[in-house]
Design a protein around this nucleic acid. Structure first.
Lengths: 200, 200
DNA sequence: ACCTGAACACCGTTCAAGT
DNA sequence: ACCTGAACACCGTTCAAGT
């Protein structure tokens, strides 16, 4: 009952198990950063000097592995989202949480992949997601009331649009990325608004 | 020398070859519409009652197969793009070509997949792409001069942003899709503009 | 010319057998 | 408890052998 399934960073592991686990994580992280995207359970096992079954023992599915690799980035995003909620100005809060979501995805493509997945399997990732959505919800409610956001936008819309923007901005220079983010931020403003902003 | 490689709709085929080819296309089209995305060469061959080698003879790679399936949609998009160029008003032309690009991708997810691919393999798809880019280029040049488009946007940006929007809008209701498109259209307008548009 | 399908090197995933 | 790796059912792709 008190057992926690699919925990990304379990504790109380046997010494060799913990060693294997960190080996696997290290190898997988290097593989995704090198190769771009595709990672294979068998290849990971081989590179980590471990049986395939050991990889599956720690990460019963590829989704779990991906979520585990992105857990730290996701936690960081949640921390930043909480700070955005505390922002006094509704418009600033909105821009900040969207900018943060975008930046975090650009820093860690693995996080972008996880945020794009239809559902989560790790318990802590589920928690992070709930927390993030709660922050987004609070901010866009305020933003709507302050008339700095289109009234038809939901937290899920923000998630989807950020995912789409991450796809569009993949492999582009920071300046281009900033332009794309600007396009989204401007487009999210309610209709019939005077937009006059200083160039970056 | 006069031989055309990787043609999507070759002519002058032997009778049985042509029959096989249309069988393969038919099966593949049904598979992508049913299953969503993944299609397997071996599965196609089996479902089409044909050897695997025959599938490879007609479509040397999956990319070629995908491009062949999307060729008609792509041609339609190019026709619409040409009409958008003829639009008198620069702003109307811009909105029209973007809307058309989005709508065509929504109608045929296979076209969206092809438009998202980093490079093309079929000769006619390359032609379509060049033509489409030419249309986009002409329109955004005009749009910039008319001050109805951010000056830093290139044709490739339009392509990327439309791809991203297609990802974001996947599986959503038409009304939501229209909202997302609105967000992009608004966001593409130059800064310091009064935006006052009637609700859809 | 075109077609066939066994064969190859890979996947993800499982599970009896070991320690 | 945990690990191993052969084994299974799949991939994409090739190519000798058939008609």
């Amino acid at each position: 009952m008190a057992e926690q399934l699919l925990l990304a960073n379990p504790t109380n592991l046997r010494a060799d198990s913990a060693r294997n686990r960190s080996q696997i994580v290290e190898v997988a992280r290097r593989m995704v950063s090198e190769d771009g995207s595709l990672l294979s359970m068998n290849a990971i096992a081989h590179a980590a000097g471990v049986g395939v079954g050991t990889v599956y023992r720690h990460f019963p599915t590829i989704q779990v592995l991906l979520e585990s690799l992105a857990a730290d980035s996701f936690a960081k995003l949640v921390v930043e989202a909480r700070q955005a909620v505390l922002e006094a100005d509704a418009s600033v809060a909105l821009e900040r949480i969207i900018r943060t979501g975008f930046d975090c995805q650009m820093e860690d493509p693995g996080l972008a992949a996880v945020l794009a997945s239809p559902s989560f399997e790790c318990a802590d990732i589920l928690d992070y997601s709930a927390e993030l959505f709660s922050c987004i919800g609070a901010i866009i409610t305020r933003a709507r009331q302050a008339n700095v956001l289109r009234p038809d936008i939901t937290p899920d819309d923000i998630r989807r649009l950020l995912n789409g923007l991450a796809v569009a901005a993949k492999d582009l220079a920071p300046r281009k990325r900033a332009q794309y983010l600007d396009v989204l931020l401007l487009g999210l403003r309610p209709e019939s608004t005077i937009t006059s902003r200083s160039a970056a």
